[in-house]
């Protein structure tokens, strides 16, 4: 459940972003959570729900989550599979099981809407 600490880090960032923009309220937070980031989306949402309730600045903020696609390249035949779902067990073309992932391990604060 390291998601709670990550949400706490997010709230700290939101406070400083709001200060810089003279905003009193955060309306919307857009996050990019890669499928290989080690972050469970439901736990992140749960943590955001709990911690934002105790925080006037973000109490009514809407959390939007974008899950990007990951490209898995077969180490044997080079076949690529692009998916935002779970890691494929094997190459769809040759059946090899060593697939190299590119991207997908990001956890990024993309955009903030505030007033």
């Amino acid at each position: 459940m390291h998601e709670i600490s990550l949400v706490q880090g997010l709230l700290d960032q939101l406070h400083s972003i709001a200060r810089e923009n003279n905003a009193k309220q955060v309306l919307r937070v857009t996050m990019i959570i890669g499928p290989l980031s080690g972050v469970v989306v439901e736990s992140f949402e749960f943590g955001f729900d709990i911690l934002s309730r105790q925080d006037d600045l973000v109490r009514d903020a809407k959390l939007e989550i974008i899950i990007p696609e990951v490209t898995y390249r077969c180490s044997n035949c080079g076949q690529e599979e692009v998916t935002s779902r779970a890691r494929p067990a094997q190459c769809a073309k040759c059946g090899d099981r060593i697939l190299i992932a590119t991207q997908g391990d990001d956890l990024i604060l993309r955009q903030v809407e505030m007033e």
Partner: peptide, 20 residues
């Protein structure tokens, strides 16, 4: 937040693009 921002009514949207 060095990203550019645009306003809709009174709210402001800021691009951050920073890893947690």
């Amino acid at each position: 937040s060095h990203g550019h921002s645009h306003s809709h009514d009174e709210s402001v949207i800021v691009d951050i693009n920073r890893s947690l």
